[in-house]
Write a protein that binds this DNA or RNA. Structure first.
Length: 308
DNA sequence: CAAATCACCTGAAAGC
DNA sequence: TGCTTTCAGGTGATTT
């Protein structure tokens, strides 16, 4: 499933192929994928038709495209098209004559541009992801909303529905001290906190297990016992694991075009803990264990990652 | 306030 | 072989 590194690659692809173009047509073969757009399909279409995608920004696993307002062109955007890939979502930039994918949910047509395909397709098998249009609101810290052109360069706005999530470990404005204080105040298990997008975004089950393994910490470690170096260690581990995946994704394909088209699927990850229960820990040889925690698998080395 | 539960989905894989 | 069950996951609303 797509986690932060995959979403970032998609963002870069969209920035390259879609940013600056205007939307000429919209179709929604499966309205379930825009169920978070409360006003329905017609409103969704009406808001997108004629709008220009000004940028493609990401925080954690949320992607958004600030839209021009035809009435006040030149002014700050105040709405955005939000996309979340959920478990199985893909954003594909393709020519309209490509056969429709089995799980094609939303289709956007763009103004023609030389050497760029004209359609953006949202394909999603499990429908945990989706798209919707929403208002942009000021960020809590007044700093740029996320990763992207306008995101990094000063547009301190974020979609309402993503305003509650924390900055991700790859965000240049990530505030370690703020996270550390929140962790100490919360009284919960460490993995639970890592998966809670309100603390830090972008970390899913796979990278949580990998980061915990790399930092040699137990998933149930109490957050109130975390010391500053502990918080640093786990976040640095998460950052390391994710940027390694991003590097791999950025170099394992010929071009961004292939990436944004999802032709090669998701990154093949080199995993040390996740899904490796029953196999030896790459660090010490102890057999990796799997326990159910929060209704999902937690994979860890019983020796390297002890709960004290 | 923390944590558990559920809802949303499909299809691969395992179990019978 | 063929049916049924389990599982996987992110997010958000609701309940304990």
């Amino acid at each position: 499933m797509p986690e932060l590194p995959e979403v970032e690659v998609v963002r870069r692809g969209l920035e390259r192929w879609i940013a600056g173009r205007s939307i000429t047509d919209v179709s929604v073969p499966d309205p379930r994928s825009i169920r978070r757009h409360a006003l329905g399909v017609e409103d969704f279409r009406g808001n997108l038709m004629g709008a220009t995608v000004l940028d493609v920004v990401r925080r954690g696993k949320f992607l958004w495209m600030p839209l021009s307002d035809s009435l006040t062109s030149g002014a700050e955007p105040h709405t955005a098209l939000v996309a979340h890939l959920g478990m199985s979502g893909q954003l594909l930039v393709e020519s309209p004559d490509q056969p429709h994918e089995k799980h094609l949910k939303v289709r956007l047509s763009f103004s023609p541009r030389a050497d760029a395909p004209e359609e953006l397709r949202f394909v999603d098998q499990r429908i945990f992801g989706g798209m919707f249009i929403t208002s942009l609101v000021p960020t809590a810290d007044g700093k740029p909303g996320g990763c992207g052109m306008t995101g990094d360069q000063g547009l301190a706005l974020i979609p309402e529905e993503a305003a509650h999530i924390g900055r991700d470990p790859l965000d240049s404005f990530f505030d370690l001290e703020a996270l550390h204080q929140k962790l100490r105040a919360r009284k919960t298990g460490l993995k639970r906190a890592l998966l809670d997008q309100g603390f830090v975004s972008g970390i899913g089950n796979i990278y949580a297990d990998e980061a915990l393994w790399a930092a040699k910490m137990h998933y149930a470690r109490r957050t109130e016992t975390m010391r500053r170096p502990d918080t640093e260690r786990i976040i640095e581990a998460a950052r390391e694991v994710m940027s390694r995946a991003l590097d791999a994704g950025g170099t394992s394909f010929d071009s961004l075009y292939v990436n944004v088209n999802g032709a090669s699927g998701y990154f093949s990850r080199s995993l040390n803990a996740y899904g490796r229960d029953g196999e030896p820990c790459p660090r010490c040889g102890t057999i990796i264990k799997r326990e159910t925690f929060m209704n999902r698998g937690s994979h860890f080395c019983p020796l390297c990652q002890r709960l004290r």
